[in-house]
């Protein structure tokens, strides 16, 4: 991705910071100078400007790229509703919390509860696309209502906990009890997964929609998708029977 704003971390983050308000409001048309005014709340330092921590350059094009180690940046991209956000590296917890629109592309690992609902909220993601190219911590996509979560490596335990709808795709291993208590929605597991006890095996088939989705991921985000996943069959488990039972887990099975 070229063009748009670039936020280059000046020096390593001194301490944990809450980035939850940086992209929660519309931002796509902000200049670098305006974006620099968005607040970040540091554990000890309190409220600072994004510009105090990052060098912001480039022109507004509905895109922003964060460069630097953001391991201790929490809630980056929370409430995002527009634009394309790329993060070159790892992020802290609750990245893309309650994502509403746009895309958040994390080119590293994400901490716990990426794309989840804020604690105590009934609904999480209501739209948009969250891509984690590394591994994701526990409860990614919890209470997702709409939208797409992709974890390219491994997903932590209880990924997609209490999903209301939407789609989760895990390329690597899906953690323990992924899909637990989902109402509707799809969890697609290209790697290993053990469905919760309250999912029932329905059938094995080749979902045409899946081929389209995976193909789109490779074109849209340049994720490499193996041919066997495009052509292979999938076991469909329906659940969670403790809830509505209208959700599904699609587990890739070698032909």
């Amino acid at each position: 991705m070229t063009g748009g704003l670039v936020a280059q971390l000046k020096t390593a983050l001194p301490e944990r910071g809450d980035f939850g308000e940086v992209l929660a409001q519309p931002w796509a048309t902000l200049s670098a100078r305006e974006m620099a005014e968005r607040p970040v709340y540091l554990e000890r330092g309190g409220r600072v400007r994004l510009g105090d921590l990052f060098d912001l350059t480039g022109q507004p094009m509905g895109r922003i790229r964060f460069v630097g180690d953001l391991q201790s940046a929490d809630r980056l991209g929370a409430g995002l509703s527009e634009g394309e956000v790329t993060v070159e590296g790892n992020v802290g917890q609750e990245a893309g919390l309650a994502l509403a629109g746009g895309s958040l592309d994390i080119r590293g690992d994400a901490g716990p509860r990426a794309g989840a609902a804020p604690l105590g909220y009934k609904r999480g993601m209501t739209g948009g696309e969250l891509i984690v190219r590394g591994s994701a911590g526990p409860e990614a996509g919890a209470a997702m209502r709409r939208g797409l979560l992709v974890v390219y490596q491994n997903a932590g335990e209880r990924t997609g906990l209490g999903m209301i709808a939407g789609t989760v795709i895990v390329f690597g291993t899906a953690g323990r009890e992924t899909g637990l208590w989902s109402k509707r929605g799809s969890v697609v597991a290209l790697g290993r997964i053990t469905p919760p006890a309250t999912y029932l095996l329905a059938c094995t088939y080749q979902p045409p929609i899946l081929r389209l989705m995976l193909t789109r991921l490779s074109t849209r985000y340049g994720l490499s998708v193996q041919r066997k996943h495009l052509t292979g069959s999938y076991r469909r488990y329906s659940g969670d029977m403790a809830e509505l039972g209208k959700g599904e887990i699609l587990e890739w099975v070698a032909k």
Binding site: E177, L180, W181, P196, A197, T198, L200, L201, D240, M241, A242, G245
Partner: peptide, 18 residues
């Protein structure tokens, strides 16, 4: 524990369980 609670709830809701 959690699987048990889930199965109990599914049964109470009258949903099919394996």
């Amino acid at each position: 524990e959690i699987p048990a609670l889930s199965l109990m709830r599914a049964a109470v809701a009258g949903n099919r369980v394996g």
